[in-house]
């Protein structure tokens, strides 16, 4: 009788998990083994055919490398900035809560609104950046229209948006470090940098792991900004994996190929999460 109650309590969560996580995952994997169907030729099982096609697809490799650069460009910078901002606002100073709020604002704003703001910043001639550089005599530049600058432009915007969000976690972690530790270090003559390196940063490592996993996930999850800003262009220069999946599924209606790409994305994320947990976790001190 008791295990019946147990199962009844678990059921609501289980239904949600199964219908929105487990079933779609399995369905995706199954779909990826089938060909794209149409009214003339119905979808049929083709084994690893989609995966073969994927390895031949130059756009797939392009978005994969784009995604790698995007991750490398956004993750270390936003984490570094987040720590610096958290340290800056973790002391007594005038207008502290205002500054904290200002740092956090990008996180509160809806993604679409953020993208629109930055669209204005990046517009050639009339955009904010071009107007400012114009005063110093630089010629105008189409930041989002140039394949050489479009990915960097998106990276800058993403760092701006993520750093404030990560700052909140670092701020919370900093406030858990007892001030006596700093005082003890000060009595020994430790410089602020030495104290940060030997004490604060190691004590922040659990937060860093958490933030790192989030940052990696976010770097593969970006769709809405691309949708507003570039649609992945020009010439796929700013296309990222998830947006490419989105395009395949909802623009080209090739859901089977999209499923194949999704399986690859899931595999990538799983591998990275495992590496982070098993390699980094051992070196981290948890209180």
């Amino acid at each position: 009788m008791r295990h019946v109650h147990g199962w009844l309590l678990l059921t609501p969560a289980a239904i949600l998990l199964v219908s929105f996580t487990h079933y779609p995952t399995i369905a995706t994997v199954i779909n990826s083994f089938f060909s794209k169907g149409n009214s003339v030729r119905p979808s049929r099982f083709i084994g690893l055919g989609n995966y073969e096609a994927m390895t031949q697809d130059p756009i797939f490799w392009k978005v994969l490398f784009n995604n790698m650069w995007f991750a490398l460009g956004t993750i270390p910078t936003s984490i570094g900035l987040a720590i610096i901002m958290a340290l800056a606002v973790n002391r007594a100073m005038p207008g502290r809560s205002f500054v904290r709020m200002a740092y956090f604002t990008p996180t509160i704003l809806p993604m679409i609104a953020v993208a629109n703001i930055w669209l204005f910043f990046y517009s050639p001639d009339i955009g904010l950046i071009d107007q400012i550089t114009g005063w110093f005599g630089f010629s105008s530049h189409n930041w989002l229209g140039d394949p050489d600058t479009v990915l960097s432009s998106i990276i800058v915007m993403t760092v701006w948006k993520e750093a404030g969000f990560f700052m909140i976690f670092y701020l919370a972690a900093l406030q858990h470090i007892p001030p006596e530790l700093g005082e003890a270090a000060k009595l020994e003559g430790a410089s602020r940098w030495y104290y940060f390196r030997r004490v604060v940063f190691p004590l922040l490592m659990p937060t860093t792991l958490f933030v790192l996993i989030n940052a990696v996930l976010n770097s593969f999850k970006l769709v809405d900004h691309l949708f507003v800003l570039t649609k992945g262009g020009p010439d796929n220069a700013s296309n990222l994996l998830l947006y490419y999946i989105f395009e395949n599924a909802f623009s080209y209606f090739d859901t089977n190929y999209a499923a194949t790409l999704t399986v690859v994305l899931l595999g990538l994320l799983a591998v990275m999460a495992l590496v982070q947990f098993f390699v980094l976790d051992r070196r981290i001190h948890y209180r």
Binding site: E183, A184, E188, G189, R198, P202
Partner: peptide
């Protein structure tokens, strides 16, 4: 400066660095 006064201090909470071993805690200064 506190470090040049020739004083050492024991805090009520001991102020030990939680991520460092006893050895490293003692040798920190």
């Amino acid at each position: 400066d506190p470090s040049r006064r020739g004083v050492s201090m024991v805090f009520q909470s001991y102020a030990l660095f939680p991520h460092l071993s006893v050895r490293e805690n003692i040798l920190f200064g």
